[in-house]
């Protein structure tokens, strides 16, 4: 079978070139819209489920949640937060009582940005759980910030008053001290710093304890949070 070159040497009109590209682009566009529309529901549902699971994990006892944003000094419930708008998630138990906030934070780690979510109970001023959402820390060392169960458990009851401090392994005694991971001091400190910074950024915007917005979503819900 010899290469078919006869067509390659022909000199087609400009109209034909434009037409070919237009048709190809059109078909491609239709195909892309088709696949986008058909996969969008699954993708959105996946993201919402992931977020809900993370929130439930950092706030023990929570079964329902809603997204909250700060607008004009008030914390208001939104179903779909704007892009790039800072958001926290309010967690509520079965009866609809407020339990705590799940607060997303991000900041530089040893390698790249670390994104995390932590549960915060304003009444006691306690961090009650922490989950790393995204990190590219060194495998075997820095990735212990989410693989080392001991380190993650440090955030199960951690006072943020006046702020969290990281100390050498085994030296943590006060309720606001975190034992750093041996060999991954920078990553451990980064996690603590991200939580402190997020907390400081939201401290002014959160309403006084006991005045949190009530849950507005329907009883059976759990879909209040956008992606």
């Amino acid at each position: 079978m010899s290469p078919d070159t006869s067509k390659l040497n022909a000199q087609p009109s400009a109209l034909r070139l434009v037409l070919t590209l237009a048709v190809a682009g059109l078909i491609s566009g239709v195909a892309i819209i088709g696949i986008y529309e058909s996969t969008l529901p699954t993708i959105t549902a996946n993201k919402a489920r992931e977020l809900r699971e993370a929130v439930f994990k950092v706030l023990p006892g929570v079964t329902r949640m809603q997204a909250l944003v700060s607008r004009d000094g008030d914390l208001v419930v939104v179903s779909e937060p704007d892009k790039d708008e800072p958001v926290v998630y309010g967690g509520y138990d079965d009866t609809g009582d407020f339990v705590g906030y799940a607060m997303p934070g991000a900041g530089p780690g040893f390698q790249d940005t670390i994104a995390l979510l932590y549960g915060y109970k304003p009444e006691e001023g306690l961090v009650v759980g922490m989950e790393i959402l995204e990190s590219r820390e060194t495998p075997g060392l820095g990735d212990k910030i989410f693989k080392d169960e001991e380190f993650v458990a440090e955030f199960d009851a951690l006072s943020v008053r006046p702020e969290i401090v990281s100390v050498k392994k085994g030296a943590g005694t006060a309720p606001n001290e975190v034992d750093s991971i041996t060999g991954a001091t920078i990553s451990s400190k980064a996690v603590v710093r991200i939580i402190n910074e997020t907390h400081a950024a939201w401290a002014e915007r959160l309403p006084p304890a006991g005045k949190e917005p009530a849950i507005v979503e329907p009883e059976t819900g759990g879909t209040g949070a956008g992606p």
């Binding site: 078919d4 067509k7 022909a10 087609p12 034909r16 070139l17 070919t20 590209l21």
Partner: peptide
């Protein structure tokens, strides 16, 4: 479509 696509594009 190798015979339909002009070589210029």
């Amino acid at each position: 479509f190798r015979n339909v696509i002009p070589k210029q594009v």
